[in-house]
């Protein structure tokens, strides 16, 4: 990979045990991919619980999912896909040395992630009001199934953990903005932007599966 020669000089980021920027970039990226593998299996456990209970109690899932609002779920899906798009645009800006574009795209991404969390907050608080609380605090009477609490345990675990990942993503994105403003990134070094982007896309992919599995059952 040939880089513009003017940028060849900027090698502050190169750690001593790597031979060149490319090796460091490739190593970081592979590290992130390996990390994503662990993320997939981490969520995988919850999907296994989901599938095991769904095959035991298909009618429970039919009944319980009516309590979830498909419209807001769809909006949230669109919001996350939009944020994935802006992250991809942010990486593109960094690759082209457009630091301003990078910062703007990161801001939009953070905003969209916050919209996602706000919608999630209203969904949760609505459920809490009618008594759909996690675990043994569950007190809702509206679902005629003795294991309704388990569906919502799985729901809260899945969306809750996903939400935690969104929050971590917001934190990372803010960190990127701070660094970008300090002019750390340029087309020869944008590794943190790239690997945070990978993380964020994975969070998006997990939601792409959560949405039909939880909201679109009937």
């Amino acid at each position: 990979m040939s880089q513009p020669s003017a940028l060849e000089e900027k090698l502050d980021h190169l750690q001593h045990h790597f031979i060149d920027s490319d090796q460091q970039f490739e190593a970081s990226k592979m590290g992130m991919w390996v990390f994503l593998v662990t993320e997939i299996l981490f969520f995988g456990g919850l999907f296994v619980a989901y599938i095991a209970y769904r095959t035991w109690y298909p009618e429970l899932y039919m009944l319980a999912s009516t309590e979830l609002n498909t419209f807001w779920g769809a909006v949230n899906t669109a919001v996350l896909i939009g944020s994935s798009l802006t992250v991809a645009m942010a990486i593109r800006s960094a690759q082209l040395n457009q630091i301003k574009g990078l910062i703007i795209n990161l801001y939009i991404t953070i905003a969209l992630a916050c919209v996602f969390m706000v919608i999630k907050f209203f969904e949760y608080s609505h459920k809490f009001e009618i008594g759909i609380l996690p675990g043994s605090y569950y007190s809702y009477e509206g679902i005629a199934h003795e294991k309704a609490n388990i569906f919502f345990s799985i729901y809260y675990m899945m969306t809750g953990l996903h939400g935690v990942h969104v929050l971590i993503g917001i934190g990372l994105m803010i960190w990127l903005v701070v660094k970008a403003k300090k002019n750390v990134f340029h087309s020869g070094y944008y590794t943190p932007v790239e690997i945070t982007g990978l993380y964020w896309h994975l969070v998006d992919i997990i939601w792409i599966f959560l949405f039909p599995l939880l909201y679109l059952i009937d």
């Binding site: 390996v34 593998v37 997939i40 995988g44 992919i205 792409i208």
Partner: peptide
């Protein structure tokens, strides 16, 4: 998303392999 946003389409095959590997092991699990 993985092919075009995460650039797997253009990336080294090994990263795609890792991605597929994780899904294979999830499928084994379930």
């Amino acid at each position: 998303v993985s092919a075009f946003f995460m650039n797997l389409y253009w990336d080294t095959k090994f990263h795609a392999m890792l991605f597929v590997l994780s899904i294979v092991f999830f499928l084994l699990f379930i």
